[in-house]
C-alpha cells in the first residue's frame, strides 16, 4: 500500500466521526520505482491532506517532505520529485493501520490492508 492510498483511506467504523488519518504501524517498508508523472502529481496535489502525508512518510522513514506545501511549489522539480517518492514509491508492506478514534487495528499483510469490519462495527 502506497501513501497515496493511505491519504485517501479513513476508518468508517460505526460511530467514528473523524477516522482520518489512520496511524501507521510499520513492520516493513519497501520502495518501488515508479515513472515520474508531473501531470498526475499536479492533479492530485489539491486533494492530498498534506499534513497526513508528511506524518505518514516520516513514520515510514522518509523525512524530506517540507512541513507545509502550497501549489506554487509544484513549479519546483525538486519538490515534485520528493512528492512523487513519498506518494507512490513508498509501500507499507507489513504492519497495521490504526483508527485514530478507537485504536482498532487494521492489519496490513503483503501490502494489503484488511479493512473488513466486524459485524458490530458496521
Amino acid at each position: 500500500m502506497r501513501l497515496l492510498t493511505h491519504n485517501m483511506l479513513s476508518s468508517n467504523i460505526k460511530g467514528v466521526t473523524n477516522g482520518f488519518p489512520l496511524l501507521i504501524e510499520v513492520e516493513k517498508v519497501v520502495e518501488k520505482q515508479v515513472d515520474f508523472n508531473e501531470d498526475f502529481l499536479r492533479n492530485m496535489f489539491p486533494k492530498i491532506e498534506w499534513k497526513a502525508l508528511v506524518e505518514a512518510s516520516r513514520t515510514m522513514g522518509y523525512t524530506e517532505l517540507p512541513e507545509n506545501a502550497e501549489s506554487s511549489m509544484l513549479d519546483s522539480d525538486e519538490f515534485l520529485r520528493k512528492f512523487h517518492h513519498a506518494l507512490i514509491e513508498l509501500h507499507l508492506e507489513e504492519g497495521a493501520l490504526v483508527c485514530p478514534e478507537t485504536g482498532r487495528k487494521f492489519p496490513v499483510n503483503k501490502g494489503i490492508p484488511n479493512m473488513l469490519l466486524h459485524e458490530d462495527e458496521v
Binding site: T5, L9, S11, N12, G111, L116, L117
Partner: peptide, 11 residues
C-alpha cells in the same frame, strides 16, 4: 489492493 466489503461502505 484493499481487502474490504463494499456493502459495508467504502472507507
Amino acid at each position: 489492493l484493499v481487502l474490504g466489503d463494499m456493502g459495508q461502505g467504502l472507507d
